[in-house]
Design a protein around this nucleic acid. Structure first.
Length: 154
DNA sequence: GCCAACGTTGGC
DNA sequence: GCCAACGTTGGC
C-alpha cells in the first residue's frame, strides 16, 4: 500500500464535498508527473491525505482512499469542460484519473504550519520542499505515521 | 493581490 | 535538444 497527498482547493472541492459524495472521480489533473503517479503507481486501497490548498488555512483536512485503478479522464474529451484537451483522442488519452473514496474528516486539520513545525521529523516530504507545486505527491510510510501522530498533538 | 517558483510550450 | 516566454500554482 502506498500513501499519497492529493491537493484540492476547498472552494472547488473540499473534504466536506467528498464526505457528501462518498466517491469522486479525481479529474482535471493536467500535470504529467501527477498523472504518472495516478496512472503508474496508484493501487486500489492506497491511503490519501486530502489536502486543502489556496485557502485561509492550508493543510490536511481528511483521509481518503483510492478506489479504482487509473482510467482515462473523461473531461479531456468533453469540449464543454474547462479540462478539455483537443490533443486527446479517445484512442490515446493523455490524461488519467482515479476514483477517491471518503474515509474520514480529521477532527482538526493538520495545517501546513504545523507540518512545518515538525519539519525535522518530516525531512524529505515532498509537500514541504520549497517551491513544490505538485497536486499529487507520494508520502513515505514513516512520514505517514508521523503525520497521523500529529493529529493528536495540539 | 503579489510574486516566486516551476512546468509546459514552441521557435530555433 | 536548448531555452526564453508564458501560464499556473499556492503561500503569504
Amino acid at each position: 500500500m502506498s500513501i499519497w497527498i492529493m491537493k484540492s482547493e476547498p472552494d472547488e472541492f473540499s473534504i466536506d464535498d467528498l464526505a457528501r459524495r462518498g466517491v469522486e472521480a479525481w479529474t482535471g489533473v493536467r500535470n504529467f508527473q501527477a498523472r504518472n503517479f495516478m496512472r503508474d503507481d496508484m493501487q486500489v486501497g492506497d491511503q490519501v491525505f486530502f489536502y486543502h490548498s489556496s485557502c485561509a488555512e492550508p493543510g490536511i483536512a481528511g483521509i481518503a482512499q483510492i478506489s479504482t485503478k487509473a482510467y482515462a479522464d473523461p473531461t479531456q474529451f468533453d469540449p464543454k469542460s474547462i479540462y478539455y484537451d483537443e490533443r486527446s483522442q479517445t484512442q490515446i488519452a493523455r490524461w488519467s484519473c482515479v476514483d477517491v473514496r471518503f474515509v474520514r474528516k480529521l477532527n482538526k486539520p493538520i495545517t501546513l504550519s504545523k507540518l512545518k513545525a515538525f519539519a525535522s521529523k518530516l525531512e524529505g516530504l515532498v509537500l514541504l520542499r520549497p517551491g513544490n507545486r505538485l497536486s499529487i505527491m507520494p508520502v513515505s510510510m514513516a512520514h505517514y505515521r508521523t503525520i497521523l501522530k500529529l493529529e493528536e498533538k495540539i
